[in-house]
Amino acid sequence: MASNEEVRNQTAGTDTKVRGREINLLPAVDIFEDPHQITVQAEMPGVSREKLNVQADRDELVIEGDIQIDMPAGMTAVYADLHSTRYRRSFVLSGELDTERIEASLKDGLLTLRIPKRMEYQTRKIKVNVP
């Protein structure tokens, strides 16, 4: 396989991205928007708070994490759906999102990111006064 060749195996939830020998698991995500924010929920089972890395600049959001689980010494693999211990996925952000105020929480391998919209972009209901 050429080192710059990118192969994507589409499988629900646990897409694997192969670039040369480097394999990253693509976390399954739900992304939804309400008038105030965009919420990203990413599945990263096996990743603890210490092994999670979330980075955001103006344009890009990167989610990374390493799986760490208890394994006895001398174990041999019998069967594996997951072929890597590393999750990585990135998204291009848009300008109205306030990346300075992203809130992140990780519970039971589920990462939730709340990315607020800048105040001036938040949808406001305008009340019509009837005289």
């Binding site: 499988t11 629900a12 939830g13 646990t14 096996g46 001398g74 069967y79 594996a80 759906d81 391998g109």
Partner: peptide, 26 residues
């Protein structure tokens, strides 16, 4: 089918068999 939830890895040693199911937020 590949991609069925939750993904599983299975490992073995002479003493025991370890099954890991990757299911976030259960």
């Amino acid at each position: 089918h590949r991609g069925t939830f939750p993904p599983i890895n299975v490992g073995a040693t002479p003493e025991r068999v370890d099954v890991y199911l990757f299911g976030a937020g259960l």
